[in-house]
Amino acid sequence: MNQSKIEVKDLNLSIGNQHILKNINCKIPSRKITVILGSSGCGKSTLLKSMNRLTDLYPKVKISGDILLNNQGIFGKEVEVTDLRKKMGLMSQRPAPLPMSIFDNVAYGLRISGRKKKLQMKLRVEYYLKVVNLWDEVKDRLKAPASSLSIGQQQRLCLARGLAVDPELILADEPTSALDPLSSQVIEKKFMELKDSFTIVWVTHTLRQAKRMADHVIFMYLGEIIEQGPAEEFFNNPQHEITKNFLNGSFN
């Protein structure tokens, strides 16, 4: 735990008069999978999205406290928010392919960061499509619109797109919730491979998935962190009553 990629300090977030996140303090260890676990509506997605400041877009949002990325605050005035976001790839619940071709979906991030050389671009797109095991399925129709892919393929495309801009972290917001079991498995496996090179934050409400994937767990309930720690400890020796209930499945 000496190397934490992200550190959240006394984070409070409210939208209008709804207090969504309450006194959040947590650390995200580097190059591990941290699972944020909790039932729906507990604020886990909001916590995830405050890390790359997508919460800035919410109307009537109020934030206090701080989040440190590599020991630097992300809410400071001098922070270039586009650079901050580029360091964190995002996968959302439903795949959100951009309204362009398969090729352009991966190339888009590269283009807006100013990379223009054609051949290099081609190689990079191919590389990342291979990383997510999509290349063989799409190499003959790179010009086809991304929306023509199946949902599972779209989600892998979104992962390739996110990886292409060379992030340090991957923020995954229940990325398998819209997928069939087989596609989910593919994505989960991919992430297990990726954790050697990336810090991963994975949000989920399924206990079994958390058990399969987590190195580190943050358990949330009604906007608060109830318990957090290394996966083994968390699952085998929960401290808090609410956690125990959740792990027993007697929760709803």
Binding site: R85, K86, M88, L90, A96, L98
Partner: peptide
Amino acid sequence: ELTEAGLSLGS
């Protein structure tokens, strides 16, 4: 989600 995806790519 499209806005979020675009912003996350550094747009």
